[in-house]
Write a protein that binds this DNA or RNA. Structure first.
Lengths: 237, 237
DNA sequence: TTTCAGCTTAAACAAACGCTTGATTGAGTC
DNA sequence: GACTCAATCAAGCGTTTGTTTAAGCTGAAA
């Protein structure tokens, strides 16, 4: 617990640390609200109440700041995903239920609506750099969940499984990105910023989709293999 | 008919029209590749081989250029959607099949991969302006498809229907936006730029999801109504 | 008290941004 | 042949971008 503002300015280094986290908080908010290109460093430092050079002192560059924003939330998301997946396995029946796996994958990433929106923006920005950044932090847990899903759906060919995993990412990202659009479309009846309610509708929808029959005709060539089981969750850069 | 340049440069005004469409083509490509903020007017005019002032002469501003890019493709997409929906109704059984409706909704928007990517980018950019632009061009056809879906799924409460329609938009947009990510995840086995193959996997997945049982507990209040049936597909601005 | 690294500051840098200007071109009209 | 006018051009407008500089401040160690 910490006290703030007028009195004590929290625990550790009251100067450096508060500036750092204030920059991170402001950047996370403004990047998610206006996009990384759309939010300038000057608006970030104005929002954080710090100097322009502080960004470059602490993070080196705007790109470094983005990676720091991303890393701060992503590492815990990936950890919580794997923890929840572990709980699924320990639960009642040995092969975990499909809905449990899906929920374990989605829930940690949807708790924080602000960061979720930033992720959605970055997912839409298909540049090589951004894709590499996201892959670096998410590929491991994605691979683990592909394994778990394959276990829960043993009859499903890997090709179909991969497509449907991709579709699941899409619904998740879009729901995170666009709370307002569905609200407008439904006269404010559906509120995706209520993440719990979103999951109530999203998880059964996805589970049902995953359980659809495989697509019969293989148009071109043979099925691919799963590409997974790299031991390190991510590596610093 | 007019003749120009070396031989014949096609039909109408050989000066104005080719410049206009060259700007539109370059802007569509560069906006979709680097984002609207990420692609400057200077790179657009350099790619198009025209002068900077030509953009402002023909489109007024960068925002006007974006809207022109958007309008050119969107109007035909909305038309083709409604045509395909009409064909669904005329087909065999009177109540059109769920998969037919979904396919009619998705297919026209996924033919052009470049513009599809731009749409995905704009969908992730949740600014009021962008959302208003997309709503202006798409709300009518979306409303019609919500009606058709409600007809095909008479047992499904509107609330569930709206959520699932939202999820459908998500998978569509994400699949359009991120061809490379699923390719990397599956060792190039899944290629979303092959739109026909994408649809083969996407439509049954979504149809199955739509047919899931309704979510039982209504957490807060009463179901909303459908908000549709505005006669004009869009109005110029 | 002096020293010194850690951190913050105001000010400025070159480059890139969207947009405007005034002159120039060339086909159509009288 | 003079005139009109949409269309294009080179050049530059003022502003904002990410980044750097050099000086100043602060709190703890010596």
């Amino acid at each position: 617990m910490a006290v703030t503002a007028q009195n004590a300015e929290v625990v550790i280094d009251p100067r450096g640390e508060s500036t750092r986290t204030r920059i991170l908080d402001s950047a996370e908010y403004l990047f998610s609200e206006h996009g990384v290109n759309g939010a300038s460093l000057r608006t970030v430092v104005a929002h954080a109440g710090v100097n322009t050079a502080a960004v470059h002192y602490h993070f080196g560059s705007k790109k470094g700041l983005l990676e720091a924003v991303f890393a701060r939330r992503t590492i815990t998301i990936a950890e919580e995903r794997l923890n929840l997946l572990e709980e699924c396995r320990e639960g009642e029946g040995r092969p975990p239920l499909l809905q449990q796996i899906i929920s374990a994958f989605l829930e940690p990433g949807m708790r924080d609506a602000t960061f979720a929106r930033l992720r959605a923006r970055m997912a839409a920005d298909a540049s090589d750099e951004t894709r590499a950044l996201m892959a670096r932090y998410f590929d491991h847990s994605s691979g683990q969940f592909l394994l778990a899903l394959a276990e829960a759906l043993p009859h499903l060919p890997p090709r179909d499984l991969h497509w449907r995993f991709h579709f699941m990412l899409g619904t998740m990202v879009y729901t995170m990105a666009n709370p307002r659009r569905i609200q407008a479309l439904t006269n404010n009846a559906c509120d995706p910023s209520d993440m719990e309610a979103s999951l109530d509708y999203l998880v059964p929808f996805l589970a049902q989709g995953f359980e659809a029959a495989p697509i019969p005709n293989a148009p071109t060539n043979i099925e691919p293999m799963l590409k997974i089981d790299r031991s390190k969750p991510h590596e610093e850069g």
